[in-house]
């Protein structure tokens, strides 16, 4: 009895493939595999970029840049870490490059009370529906933290996010930002106190200090 014809390809169910399988296909020029990777990680990349860049417009631009770089770097992924770890690193580096290219960077935080921020916040916390119920109990404090983190100015927010959200070591952050270790530490420590005061006291002093608007990347 004859089995099904083997020369007829069944459509690939991309969503069922793991990252490595998608990468292999994407390297061979399979656009569907690349698109699936983009869809799978677009939320995470955007959120990471938002924390790093501090506003929706720049986060959007940086996310697009990340996926363009991904397209042209498919062959560079060596498999020494997981694909997701590699992609997060690509995101961080892309954001750092963008911030550094501005030199004396003027903080471009948009009006965080505006509609764009509301939409963004909804997007960022949109994943909470996927979390177990008990996790949702803490969602309010997480939302407050996210809202306040992005209000920190660059010099505090960027090293702080790298350390306290992504777990980079102080030394790694100093190398990424090309800043002295002592400066990195003091900025992170300052950010932690500022965040505490913004969350609990609503001082908001962070946004009104002109000297903090200037990013001092080399």
């Amino acid at each position: 009895m004859k089995g099904p014809a083997r020369d007829v390809k069944s459509p690939i169910r991309y969503s069922r493939l793991n990252d490595e399988a998608l990468l292999t296909l994407a390297r061979e020029g399979d656009e569907g595999a690349y698109e699936t990777l983009v869809r799978r990680y677009q939320h995470e990349v955007y959120t990471s970029a938002f924390f790093m860049m501090g506003n929706p417009a720049d986060a959007h631009d940086a996310s697009q840049e990340v996926f363009i770089k991904l397209y042209f770097s498919l062959g560079k992924f060596a498999g020494r870490s997981s694909f997701s770890t590699w992609l997060y690193r690509l995101t961080i580096n892309t954001c750092i490059d963008e911030l550094r290219s501005r030199k004396r960077y003027r903080n471009r935080n948009v009006d965080l009370e505006g509609e764009s921020y509301q939409a963004l916040e909804a997007q960022i916390v949109g994943k909470k529906g996927d979390l177990p119920e008990e996790e949702c109990l803490n969602s309010e404090i997480k939302e407050i933290l996210i809202r306040e983190v992005v209000r920190l100015h660059d010099r505090h927010r960027i090293p702080f996010v790298l350390r306290d959200v992504y777990g980079y070591s102080y030394q790694e952050i100093a190398e990424i930002l090309r800043l002295p270790l002592g400066t990195v530490k003091s900025n992170i420590f300052r950010a932690r106190r500022l965040l505490r005061d913004m969350v609990f006291k609503g001082r908001g002093e962070e946004r009104n200090r002109d000297e903090d608007n200037i990013l001092f990347f080399s």
């Binding site: 404090i141 996210i146 983190v149 306290d164 959200v165 992504y166 932690r192 505490r196 609990f200």
Partner: peptide, 21 residues
């Protein structure tokens, strides 16, 4: 109180990562 609030904020930050990974 400031010390406790600082610890509180930092302990919840690790959970923020859930949104990013």
């Amino acid at each position: 109180g400031d010390y406790k609030r600082l610890k509180f904020v930092l302990s919840h930050l690790s959970q923020v990562e859930e949104y990013c990974s």
